[in-house]
Design a binder for these strands. Structure first.
Lengths: 187, 187
DNA sequence: GGACTATACGGAACATGGTTCCGTTTGCAA
DNA sequence: TTGCAAACGGAACCATGTTCCGTATAGTCC
């Protein structure tokens, strides 16, 4: 394993600036904020973005890496501390929904079949689906829920339900996600 | 009510061509097919599209008007012919899902908060929400389902679950919609 | 049938946003 | 101090939605 050569100092600085700028731009313009806006905020040229983050997905992943990690780690904790696995599942999904609905456009990007977003897709699936699967399995063996739906599909559905959340007060993603989770219960 | 002056013959011809061209383009490129592609198919200039259909939403509505109408009319029929209101609701929602998943990108457009799609949004809501409300109310009075979710939100959720359907075999919108409808059942 | 006018047309021009290219600058090590 | 590979910036390019304007024509009136 050859140690990859240390990056130049200005490159590291710029990457840091870009992460901050992107985070700020995402808050006001959503995760589809124009490249030029992000570059301007960071005080760099547009090509610098592409050099550090070849696709938008890479940038989004880098910006939200910590939060996704925290969400993933919350799974086992909730399972250990909750009265029933089904309750833990519900709480964990609430966390996930909270995360998604506060990132304007992220849920939409997650579902996009645009090739540029495949990394994003893969990252979220890699990190979160196993956690969800663990919670699902626990609730399944406890006899609380049906076992004919896998974690990937459940998370996909939850993500979909979060699309557009916040744009119209008549639509509350949380309520529908609760309904979906309720649908898992055995009759 | 002054009878609005009859349109010119070429205008009517072009409108017809555009509807056919758009329908064809939507099948292969989804409802976000480039304006130029639709214009080329119809053998007209791009401005002609904007003259007849100021926003994309208007074009989409015009193309799918009949199918939406058919879906709306199926509601009362199903309710009259089914054994239980909840079953009728399920069947009707299946119809709606079938419609959405076969129109690439339509579900996404329905949720978009882009101002250009507000007409589309409004049209679907106008036509379908009352039908759904009727089915919901019937099932509610029959004591089969919870009554704390309104038709608008249910349809919104169903529409969301249909986004991206067909782009990945691991995701089946129908299964998740069934789960959502199952979640409505009273325990 | 011929002329007139409102209507409608087509495509070029403009705006926006993603992506790439290339001449220039700069960190770092010898 | 110098050399060069790494990194940079922004102009240029491409794709797409939208508008403008000079031109063509359907329908009407004589």
């Amino acid at each position: 394993m050859p140690a990859l050569p240390r990056k130049r100092a200005d490159a590291r600085r710029n990457e840091e600036s870009l992460l901050e700028a992107a985070a700020a731009a995402f808050v006001v313009s959503g995760v589809n904020a124009p490249v030029r806006e992000i570059a301007a905020r960071a005080g760099v040229g547009v090509a610098t973005i592409y050099r550090h983050f070849p696709t938008r997905a890479d940038l989004i992943v880098a910006v939200y890496r910590h939060q996704v990690q925290a969400c993933a780690e919350a799974g086992p904790t909730l399972l250990a501390g909750s009265t029933s696995p089904h309750a833990a599942l519900g709480e964990w999904i609430d966390l996930f929904v909270d995360f998604l609905v506060t990132k304007h456009g992220l849920a939409g990007a997650l579902q996009s079949d645009d090739a540029a977003f495949q990394n994003l897709h893969a990252y979220f699936l890699d990190r979160l689906v196993p956690v969800c699967a663990e919670l699902l399995a626990a609730a399944g063996t406890a006899g609380e829920i049906r076992t004919d739906l896998d974690a990937l599909e459940l998370m996909w559905g939850v993500g979909n339900l979060c699309i557009g959340s916040g744009s119209d007060p008549r639509y509350d993603a949380r309520r529908l996600v609760d309904l979906l989770v309720a649908g898992l219960r055995l009759p």
